[in-house]
Design a protein around this nucleic acid. Structure first.
Lengths: 153, 153
DNA sequence: CCAATCTCAGAAGAACTGAAATGG
DNA sequence: CCCATTTCAGTTATTCTGAGATTG
């Protein structure tokens, strides 16, 4: 009986989480907020509902985080030109600054995480995890069961 | 700028967590409880403090889970012969039964997680995650900085 | 006295569900 | 009317910190 991969993922995530929380605390940023900032840095203009789907949380949960980011002045939101109800978020200058500080503070943790791995293994791990995330997305599930993803035709 | 592995781990963990919660809910078991039961199945006789260290949570948090497992009759605890304060836990018959039910309920999720991977990649992933978990453990940190792990000599 | 374990109590972070308002 | 997004409100899961008791 081999150990489940899901269990190993959970274990590593807990180990990381404890350290990330501690490293970010002095900066006044939570790990949840840091994650949202990182995603927005790479995918500027996402709405909070889009962020939610990408992060596997409810849209309410993500919205709560996004509101905090906005209140702190780290992002600003403007309505989509085609649909005023959709608020697209992008980092402010101060958001980019705090993100850079978070990156610096957490870099040693990422380094420690990957300490025992060759660079090939690190790259492999990255690719494998991307595939796993894709397999878990609802679109993948729909594809698997042969049904259309969303929207009735 | 490549994506951080810590971020990918977190993302996959969230995706898994949502599905595991849903699959286990009908059984009246939380994901946290299921995880503890799984560990005890493979490492019978661990104390809750030992479980806590292995799972990267505080001993209070783990103790709370263990108390629930005991109240539900899924584990029983008896004092260590050499140290009466240490309570060693092991699965009961009913604990093994509920664990088997949880395993059945969550097997499809694990299957979906690994759906896009070859069996070589799955094995690699397992090994790599074990290494990552070891790198994050406090003992590894102590080893890295050249200090003794615990207990002054 | 010290170290480890367990327990109790209170608080915080992060997620959920349900319901309402808005825009296309 | 339907659907997606955002927001408000209440709730649940999980973990944390701090303090105290016990055992060796």
């Amino acid at each position: 009986m081999t150990v489940r991969v899901s269990y190993l993922i959970k274990r590593v995530e807990r180990g990381l989480r404890t350290e990330l929380d501690a490293a970010l605390k002095p900066l006044g940023v939570t790990t949840t907020e840091y994650t949202a900032l990182s995603v927005l840095a790479r995918r500027s203009g996402l709405s909070s509902a889009q962020l939610a789907r990408r992060s596997f949380v409810s849209d309410q949960a993500m919205n709560q985080t996004v509101v905090v980011l906005e209140r702190n002045g780290w992002i600003e939101r403007s309505p989509d030109p085609h649909h005023a109800r959709i608020l697209r978020a992008r980092l402010t200058r101060s958001g980019r600054a705090i993100l850079a500080a978070c990156d610096r503070a957490t870099a040693p943790i990422e380094r420690r995480l990957l300490d025992g791995l060759s660079s090939e293994d690190t790259e492999r791990l990255r690719k494998i995890l991307e595939i796993c995330a894709a397999s878990l997305s609802p679109q993948a599930e729909a594809r698997e069961s042969g049904a259309p993803a969303r929207s009735t035709p």
